[in-house]
Amino acid sequence: MADGSTMVVGAPAATSPGPRQAGSMKQLARRRSLAALALCSPLILLIVCLKIYPTFYAVFLSMLDRKMNNFVGFDNFAFMISRPSFQLVIFQSVLFAVTAVILKAFLGFVLAHLMHNIRGRNERVWRGLLLVPWVIPLSLSTLTWWWLFDPSYSAFNWTLNMLGFEDIAFLGTVWNARLSVIAVNVWFGAPFFMIMYLAALKSVPEQLYEAASIDGATAVQRLFFITIPMMRNIILITVLYSLIVTFADFDIVRILTNGGPQDGTHLFATYAFVVGIQSGNIPRGATVSLFMFPILAALAFFVLRDVMKRNKEMA
């Protein structure tokens, strides 16, 4: 509607008195964004110097020879991937991350539902007790697990014996060790899933369930048609995030098995540590770490896409 346009003094005419102001206003705006940039500069410095630069430097390192004198291109990558011991690392890392995350997600889901069932009744205490594994520094609780698994003093084996079973060499065979490592990771990580899923459960409006009940939905139907779709986002993002963290895990394997037996439990991180720091082969160590990169980047891409989508929806 262009009515009243006779009252409007057009914008071009209006600008005539104010070139000076426009200038100084721009200056003000510039000063403000300069101040904003200054406040961010420690963060930027930190990220650039200690995250971005090391990433590129890692790529550079991975292309050097053992003495770090000569540039060898992708030879290190080719060499690593041809080695059966490293192929085992890839296999074990994927097995470990995928199995552990699935189990954590499932256990977290069950626990969240149990917690949701008893909501309001000493919920804080129960939640606190369930969170204990997650609160103790992982390296220390892993040490305790090691002690529990100890070949000659295992309290678990004592209990098994009491119940009439044979001893189990928890860390003695490759597959036992793999399962033990996964078990410890699940023990440590399930509480995190529980609190994320519990928060998601709480954010589902009660009316939806009431409406579904009135429509005649059974408990199982409510789970599949309301709870899971409503939690979809948070389930996804928690799983993706946990995949990244689990995939890059170091503490558990380092302390529990240090890669053994027969290098059957090494993950990228522990293997890189052995190769790069302990054996001092920096380029090979960097190479091993960098093998994680594409997988992590792909996972990060999905997390980010999800986060951005939600930000957009919120705006």
């Binding site: 963060l43 990220i47 200690l50 995250k51 971005i52 630069y53 090391p54 990433t55 430097y57 890692a58 390192l61 995030y241 990244i244 963290v245 995939f247 890059a248 895990d249 170091f250 990228f268 991180a269 890189a272 540590f273 790069g276 720091i277 920096i282 160590g285 960097a286 770490s289 960098l290 994680m292 990169f293 992590l296 996972l299 990060a300 997390v303 980010l304 986060v307 951005m308």
Partner: peptide, 22 residues
């Protein structure tokens, strides 16, 4: 802001070798 979130997803075990040199 996005970059900050991304760096959060970079685990310590990815960079500990170059950082060792630095």
């Amino acid at each position: 802001s996005t970059g900050v979130f991304l760096t959060y997803l970079v685990p310590p075990s990815l960079l500990f070798i170059p950082l060792f040199q630095i």
